[in-house]
Simulated assay, not measured.
Amino acid sequence: MMSIRIIVAGANGRMGREVVKMIQQNDHFTLAGGVSRSQKGRDIGEVIGFGPLEVAFTGSVEEALAKHDAEVLVDFTTPQSVKEHVELAVQAGVRPVVGTSGLSERDIKELEQLCRERGSGAIIAPNFAIGAVLMMVFAGQAAKYLPHVEIIESHHDRKLDAPSGTAMKTAELIAENRHEFKQGHQGEEEVLDGARGAYYQGFRVHSVRLPGLVAHQEVLFGGPGQLLTIRHDSLNRESFMPGVKLAIEKVLELDHLVYGLENILDL
């Protein structure tokens, strides 16, 4: 197998560091470049504690794409910059694998159109943990039979978007299998604004942000005399790497954008 050359945007961040580590552990992957505005010019390995890798940080994705010959861009950056990064990569003939959440439905549709026009593969996944993807799929199936549902997602306190991309994707899968209706008592009143969580297609989504958490979600389904809980916990960021590895390998086979890791799993 020929080596896949990869640029990592956000390589100095928590997830980016794990991606660089994963790349170094796989013989058929090569770290072509990394992006960090604050570490521009420094050796990536020295900055993140691996020892010299002889690959220096560039200050922007645009600079990295121009400087390095690569097949794949892995992006774990910020909601404010990710759409532009995907556009730059596709226009440069590089396949994006995106774990940054915060893209709107409109953003995704525009990126789908760009990928179709360019014949480029791309994968955007709200969550790369295989167990989390299974949780989302199982929740969608359960909603056919237990339509009364609420989602509670919990993340570390440095996460920028709420609800999480995983919670939003879960809500979308549930809505596909559930007729919209407003749950709860019709006369319900919030004594504190937001106490019942965000409203989506008749059910509620709750976000918790605390130090010490990584990424956790439970989906609660209620029925007469019963409660079904589907839960997933990522205990460290290494849990996302098998999914990232799979996406890097699969994106080279695609000619369109795929939203959600479940679409490249054999389910």
Rank of each mutant, 00 (worst) to 15 (best):
P79N: 04
Q183F: 03
I48V: 05
K83Q: 12
R14M: 08
P224H: 14
E54P: 00
K159W: 02
G121Q: 07
G119K: 10
T166P: 13
L53K: 04
I124M: 03
I248Y: 02
H179R: 12
D266G: 07
F76T: 01
E71N: 11
G223E: 02
V191N: 06
L210S: 13
H85C: 11
Q25K: 15
Y199S: 12
M22E: 09
K245G: 04
V74T: 02
V35Q: 04
V208L: 14
I130S: 05
A162I: 15
V251N: 01
T229L: 10
A11W: 12
V214Q: 05
S104T: 15
R42E: 14
R14Q: 11
H85W: 03
F29H: 05
K250R: 13
F181A: 08
D157Q: 12
H216E: 15
Q25A: 10
V214A: 11
S154M: 06
E84L: 12
L265R: 01
N127I: 13
A32N: 06
G99F: 01
A215R: 12
G165P: 10
G10C: 07
F76S: 05
P126T: 02
N26T: 13
S38W: 06
H179F: 06
F138P: 00
V149F: 00
A142Q: 05
N127H: 10
E112N: 11
K21A: 07
V55R: 04
R116V: 01
D233H: 13
E238P: 02
G51V: 06
D69P: 01
Q201E: 14
F50Q: 11
G13A: 05
H85E: 01
S81R: 05
L53Q: 08
K245C: 07
S164M: 13
Q186I: 14
V20A: 09
A125I: 01
D233I: 15
V74P: 01
D69L: 09
L261K: 02
D161K: 15
T58H: 03
R116I: 00
E188K: 15
R231K: 15
D255M: 13
V258L: 06
R209N: 04
Q141L: 14
G223N: 11
G202F: 13
L257P: 08
S101A: 09
G187A: 05
E117W: 09
G34H: 06
T229W: 03
D161G: 11
K182N: 05
L192G: 02
V74S: 02
Q226C: 09
L228M: 07
M241K: 08
I264C: 06
V205D: 04
R158T: 15
V86L: 12
H216C: 10
L160M: 15
V20R: 13
S101E: 06
I152C: 03
V191P: 01
E189N: 06
